[in-house]
Nucleic acid binder design. Structure first.
Length: 431
RNA sequence: GGAGGGGUGGCAGAGUGGUCGAAUGCACCGGUCUUGAAAACCGGCGUCCCUUCACGGGGACCGCGGGUUCGAAUCCCGCCCCCUCCGCCA
């Protein structure tokens, strides 16, 4: 949510900044007219209430001294209908106002490139050299089944399209990746490990911005007001909802490993093969709650923490700043980290790191008390994958594949793999 | 799932229809005293909204949402959460 002060402002660049995020100018104007109406009704109703409160006190005083209060009670009685009518109008105006403001996306930070889609994204840096293969590298959807570690057919059998069963070293490799990432972020980057609920209520989803606008992306539990989490960002960012934190405790840096569930509505025909786009995947998520003054430093730090995983695994990648049109709803600035996938001959997103500034904090009531005392202020929230486990496994399979179809295991993961240095193609039907 | 108890300010804990945004204690902030500190004493100390250049004024909030009433923390209805015991269970 944007602040009402901002939405009210005379600033004529506001409409165009919203326009960059895909919001028609008329929506701002209608918000402003509902806001004017609300304040005018509020003024009237509060005046009547003031009168009512005064008279009610008089009645109390009169009755206590045994006097007749009939006349005063009659006067209050006349106020009642007026108050009720105004409050009804006030409530419906409030509803219009909040429905509108819930639909406004965050404004982009000044450093974000303007543009309609990913064509306007800006590459910030490219790290690592894609490996030169002396054979034709395979895609993971060929490598995985051949190694007997990924089974798309059986995943589809027990659930449906976009679900995968992992076997043997594949299952273990993903678990190794998760453990490796959690250990790195907690031991070296100062994160507190959190295991949040994997099911959340509507308030949490409103807090981070998935609701009310993007319900079709979520899996909802039948018969309950519960949803499977699309990302750990939702439960973790909402952990301190409605709280006022002491500034001394900041920044709060959380890392959480969770499964993520996404309906992927409207993505039919996109990435239909392999692990890239699944209804269920695992992710290690990084979340920062910090002060407005430090949130952009925190974005660099968080992004660097995510890059650190790729660097340790020696996977080539690049960092891209998303354009105003490509960013998510709640973000003010987003860096996507894209890993090189030889099997696709392309860089593909493996992490998305965003500073949401006060946008989510305002929705979720995340505040802090400044160190010197004084009024509570809104926090800034940040989140980013550090990293998506399934896609990292894809990157390892494709980048570390050998000519014989085996896959080498990157050094840092070997302790988590029982010391194994490779996953070998099984000898089928031998003997 | 069954039975019972409970949700009040940072914490503890009063308050069962009016003078209650809410006693009291602790914590916290300022002051007096003191060489300094502690103790003692004095004062301050919630959040949101509207309005005002400002000082200030007003409204709302005692888990959430409705209702009764001139007036609700207090009465009624629904819901949520927590605790205890029983059952079931990873």
């Amino acid at each position: 949510m944007l602040s009402r002060d901002l939405l009210r402002s005379e600033d004529d660049t506001l409409a165009s900044r919203l326009g960059l995020r895909g919001i028609a100018a008329g929506l701002l104007e209608s918000w402003q007219s509902f806001d004017r109406e609300r304040r005018s009704i509020l003024g009237e109703v509060e005046q009547l209430k003031q009168r009512r409160n005064e008279l009610s006190k008089q009645i109390g005083a009169l009755k206590r001294e045994g006097s007749d209060a009939e006349a005063v009670m009659a006067e209050v009685g006349e106020l009642k209908a007026g108050i009720a009518g105004l409050e009804e109008r006030l409530a419906s105006t409030e509803t219009e106002l909040t429905d509108l403001e819930m639909a406004f996306p965050n404004l982009a930070h000044a450093s974000v490139p303007a543009g309609a889609d990913e064509a306007a994204n800006r590459v910030e840096r490219t790290v690592g050299e894609p490996r030169a293969f002396d054979f034709e590298p395979q895609a993971h959807w060929d490598l995985g089944p051949a190694l007997g570690i990924l089974d798309f057919e059986r995943g589809a059998k027990v659930a449906g399209a976009r679900f995968t069963a992992y076997f043997g070293s594949g299952a273990r490799l993903e678990r190794a990746l998760i453990s490796f990432m959690l250990d790195l972020h907690t031991a070296e980057n100062g994160y507190i490990e959190v295991q949040p609920p994997f099911i959340v209520n509507t308030d949490a989803l409103i807090g981070t911005g998935q609701l009310p606008k993007f319900e079709e992306d979520l899996f909802k539990l039948s018969g309950h007001e519960y949803y499977l989490i699309p990302t750990a960002e939702v439960p973790v960012t909402n952990l301190h909802r409605g709280e006022i934190l002491e500034e001394e405790r900041l920044p709060l840096k959380y890392v959480a490993h969770t499964p993520c569930f996404r309906a992927e509505a409207g993505s039919y025909g996109k990435d239909v093969r392999g692990l890239i786009r699944q209804h269920q995947f695992q992710k290690v998520e990084l979340v920062h709650l910090t002060t407005p003054e430090t949130s952009y430093e925190a974005l660099e730090e968080l992004t660097g923490n995510a890059e650190g995983v790729l660097q340790r695994l020696e996977l080539p990648y690049r960092v891209v700043t998303l354009s105003t049109g490509d960013m998510g709803f709640s973000a003010a600035k987003t860096y996507d980290i894209e890993v090189w996938l030889p099997g696709q001959n392309a860089y593909r997103e493996i992490s998305s790191c965003s500073n949401c500034e006060a946008f989510q904090a305002r929705r979720a009531g995340l505040r802090y008390r400044p160190a010197g005392g004084g009024k509570p202020r809104l926090l800034h929230t940040l989140n980013g994958s550090g990293l998506a486990a399934g896609r990292t496994l894809v990157a390892i399979l494709e980048n570390y594949q050998n000519a014989d179809g085996s896959v080498s295991i990157p050094e840092p993961l070997r302790p988590y793999m029982g010391g194994a240095d490779s996953i070998e193609v099984p000898v089928v039907g031998a003997g």
